[in-house]
Computed example of a mutant assay.
Amino acid sequence: MTTTSIRATKKHQFERLQMRNVSRSYSKGSFALTDLDLSLGRGEFVALLGPSGCGKSTALACMAGLQPLTSGSIWRDDQRIDNLPTEKRGFGMVFQNYALFPHMTVQKNVEFGLKMRKVARPERATRASRTLELVQLSEHAGRLPAQLSGGQQQRVAIARALAIDPEIVLMDEPLSNLDASLRVELRTEIKRLYQERGLTVLYVTHDQEEALSLATRLVVLRAGKLEQTGTPEEVYTNPVSAYVAGFMGYRNLFSAVASASRSDGTIEVDLNGQRLLGTFRSPGAPQPGAKVTVAIRPEDVKLSAGTAADGLEVIAEVVEYHGRELAVQTRTRGGIVIHLRTGEQVSAGNDVRLQISPDRVLVYSDEAHIDEEGQVKTVG
């Protein structure tokens, strides 16, 4: 039997899983989640994205039944499930620390969930073997976890989650303990399994590249509340706030002052004495003199050989060789740090001019935490 022919056969197909106005507090007045509404449709791969402390792992734990709700409810279609124990919710779960039993073989680890569900021994052995085939670990079935690499152990954890034929798979930063090359390899494996098995996945991560490559929909959390949701392309190209922009590759985040709005829809901002044109993304229009936050991707910053009026004069401070391109940290005369990536030659100490298209300069109302150097800290 080929791996592509093995598919789950679910007894009760659900259409939608919902968290309705879910709150979770750990102490009086301190909430990890506040009135969170989260929806997951059958066949979706939803990534919960945000920094440590934003509530994403708490949301997953509440969904799984590992933590009680302070208020709100969780529904699978028209059935309320937040009053059910974890093992009755029908979820497969994968954690960042693998959570394998060290004294059990790979085969027995994968069979464990089936055994708890009182599946007959011959059937659970067959299902475990087929699932190990899916994750390409059949030849390691008789080994102990300690005899496997980190990536192989995480594959065993994924196989154990899939073996019970779950309606939904919950994954809490499953790749965070792996080195870079293994993360990429296993990320591809998770995507393959999602596509081949027709899975429904709720996935927690703080890594925007991971979220973009895996998910069909992103949910960005901020201090326990939903900040933005949409397809990866929607969130990547149109972040609703500087906070979201900080997780979607806009490494250049800094404070500025609004100067004037133009008839072509652009806005002029002042960067400690230098002028920059951008596109305002918050509701309304800022008054001249109002503080704003500017967000720019490093790849959208270009080196200019001319003296264009809209260019920024900077000094190249740090130049890193990244193969086909250089990663360059520059600083304006006013002390603002701007990062760029370029294939052109530049050396530390060079005076250079930067060109940035106004539609690539996103301007928001002043909403983020600014440090002493004028940089935005995207913390929850």
Rank of each mutant, 00 (worst) to 15 (best):
Glu87Trp: 13
Leu36Gln: 05
Glu317Ala: 07
Asp207Leu: 04
Leu253Trp: 04
Gln228Thr: 15
Arg341Val: 11
Asn272Glu: 13
Asp82Tyr: 04
Ser304His: 15
Thr4Glu: 05
Met171Val: 14
Arg360Phe: 14
Thr237Gly: 07
Glu372Asp: 14
Leu48Pro: 01
Ala59Val: 15
Thr216Glu: 06
Met171Asn: 09
Asp351Tyr: 14
Lys108Tyr: 00
Asp35Phe: 03
Asp270Lys: 15
Gly334Ala: 12
Thr332Met: 05
Lys291Gly: 12
His369Ala: 13
Glu233Arg: 13
Leu253Met: 04
Ser52Gly: 06
Pro174Thr: 13
Tyr236Thr: 10
Asp207Tyr: 04
Ser181Asn: 11
Val135Cys: 11
Ile164Tyr: 06
Asp300Thr: 05
Gln147Ile: 00
Val269His: 09
Pro286Trp: 00
Asn238Ser: 11
Glu317Tyr: 01
Lys11Asn: 13
Ser30Pro: 07
Val318Pro: 06
Gly29Lys: 02
Phe14Ala: 09
Leu40Glu: 02
Leu137Thr: 00
Asp179Gln: 02
Gln67Asn: 12
Val204Asn: 01
Pro145Phe: 00
Glu133Ile: 13
Leu49Trp: 02
Val184Ile: 14
Asp270Cys: 15
Leu66Ile: 04
Thr342Leu: 08
Cys62His: 08
Asp264Val: 09
Glu87Ser: 15
Asp165Arg: 13
Ala8Arg: 14
Arg80Ile: 12
Pro283Phe: 04
Asp37Val: 03
Arg7Gln: 09
Gly142Asn: 12
Leu170Phe: 01
Glu317Ser: 09
Gln274Arg: 05
Arg297Met: 05
Arg160Phe: 00
Ala159Val: 00
Pro286Lys: 09
Lys377Gly: 10
Val379Trp: 14
Leu202Trp: 01
Lys118Asp: 13
Gln18Thr: 08
Ala141Gly: 03
Thr105Asp: 01
Thr229Cys: 08
Thr70Gln: 05
Glu173Ala: 09
Leu17Ala: 03
Met116Trp: 02
Val22Trp: 06
Arg183Tyr: 08
Leu312Cys: 08
Leu49Ile: 10
Thr4Ser: 04
Arg275Ile: 12
Gln274Ile: 13
Asn109Ala: 02
Ala159Trp: 07
Gly90Asp: 11
Thr2Ile: 14
Thr58Glu: 02
Gly335His: 07
Asp78Asn: 13
Val156Asn: 02
Ala309Leu: 11
Asp165Ser: 15
Val352Gly: 03
Gly311Thr: 10
Pro122Met: 10
Ala64Arg: 04
Ala163Leu: 05
Ser73Gly: 08
Ala211Pro: 14
Ser25Ile: 00
Ser282Gln: 08
Ala309Tyr: 05
Ser304Ala: 15
Val184Leu: 10
Ala256Ile: 12
Asn350Val: 06
Ser5Ile: 11
Val292Leu: 13
Thr9Gly: 06
Ile158Arg: 03
Ala256Ser: 12
Asp78Ala: 12
Lys108Gln: 04
Pro166Phe: 05
Val119Asn: 03
Gln13Trp: 10
Ile81Tyr: 00
Met63Tyr: 03
Val106Gln: 01
Gly334Thr: 15
Leu33Phe: 11
Ser213Pro: 08
Met171Trp: 00
His12Thr: 14
Val361Lys: 07
Gln18Arg: 07
Val169Tyr: 06
Leu277Phe: 02
Tyr194Lys: 09
Pro166Ser: 09
Ala309Lys: 10
Gln13Ala: 15
Glu344Phe: 12
Thr231Ala: 13
Leu303Lys: 04
Lys377Ser: 13
Lys10Ala: 14
Leu253Arg: 03
Glu367Val: 01
Ser39Trp: 07
Asp82Ser: 06
Glu189Thr: 00
